[in-house]
Amino acid sequence: MIQTVDFFTPIVDDPYMFGQIAAANSLSDVWAMGGEPAVALNIVGFPNCLDPAILGDILAGGADKVKEAGAVLVGGHSVQDDEPKYGLCVSGFVHPDKIFKNYGCRPGDVLVLTKQIGSGVINTAIKAEMASPSAVKEAQMVMASLNRIAKRVTERYHVSACTDITGFGLLGHCVEMAEASDVTFELKVKDIAYMADAIDYAKMGLVPAGTYKNRGYSIGKVETGSIEECYVDLLYDPQTSGGLLLSVSPDDVEGMMRDFEHAGMETTVSIIGKVAPKSDKLIRLF
């Protein structure tokens, strides 16, 4: 049995979309461990000063994502709060022999990421009223997309390790996985898929505060070399409902990428680097 819980404040203006994103984010941990969600409970904080119809739209968005995930929404709990908050407590199941662990990467493995990154930067641009319609549309699509298809493709192959990319950013989760596996990750920065306009916004300094917190935590374990600052910022950008990061045998990569393409993934899947024997740094950027 897998048990997980997650909730947060609105990151988009549309309440239905917020419900979808929050639910997708909450469900993600189950797939990141190789399981399937079964039941979910709503967690709600809501102010008395707002129209209850807004809450209805949030809950409708969440309920639709739970249904899409193949799980059942069985209730929940709400409290009065000064700021809206929404998420899920999710229970799921996985076969004991098929659990995806966030350690066990082997030198020679290939690193695959199943969603493009940059949602924190795009959301910062939205708050500054500088985001293009295409950037907003893509970011919302990525954040609301379930990791269900990615997991079902992945489970057909031997996966050394897996985690989902969330608030610590891609580099934060890479450091965690590499350290636990006693290896070094070599990432090809320009092979990583980024959301529309995210690089331009990062160059303009539209970077969330969480990026700098993430960076301060682990930058000493990362060799950035001559990589442009905007890319380092994007790699530390806190993600909401990010994709799966997979460490895969090189023998399986071609078949896996072909299956991702045939599965009709909404998001962009990219090969972002490889696993090397441990060196003086946990991550090397190229």
Rank of each mutant, 00 (worst) to 15 (best):
I2P: 03
V5D: 02
V5T: 10
V5A: 07
D6C: 02
D6T: 05
T9Q: 12
V12A: 08
D14F: 05
D14K: 00
Y16I: 00
A22S: 10
A24H: 06
N25S: 15
S26Q: 00
L27T: 01
D29I: 01
W31L: 00
M33V: 02
E36Q: 03
P37C: 13
P37L: 10
V39K: 02
V39C: 02
G45H: 07
C49F: 08
P52F: 13
I54G: 00
I54S: 01
L55E: 13
L55A: 08
A60K: 15
A63D: 08
K65R: 15
V72W: 01
L73C: 02
L73I: 00
L73Y: 06
H77M: 13
V79I: 15
Q80V: 15
E83Y: 14
K85F: 07
C89Y: 11
V90Y: 03
H95D: 07
I99K: 02
F100V: 00
Y103G: 02
P107M: 10
V112K: 06
K115A: 07
Q116C: 07
S119L: 12
S119W: 08
A131C: 12
S132A: 13
K137G: 03
L146A: 09
R152C: 03
V153W: 07
V153D: 02
T154A: 15
S160A: 15
T163N: 09
L171C: 14
L171F: 15
V175T: 05
E179F: 12
A180I: 05
E186D: 03
L187E: 04
D191S: 12
I199V: 15
A202T: 06
A202Y: 11
A209R: 08
T211D: 12
T211P: 12
T211L: 13
R215W: 14
I219Q: 11
E223A: 14
E223P: 03
T224P: 03
T224C: 13
E228Q: 10
C230M: 09
V232G: 11
V232W: 11
D233N: 14
L234Q: 09
S241R: 04
G243W: 08
G243T: 05
S247A: 14
S247N: 04
S249N: 11
D251Y: 00
D252S: 13
G255T: 07
M256T: 11
F260D: 04
E266M: 10
S270W: 01
A276H: 01
A276F: 00
P277L: 12
K278C: 08
S279F: 07
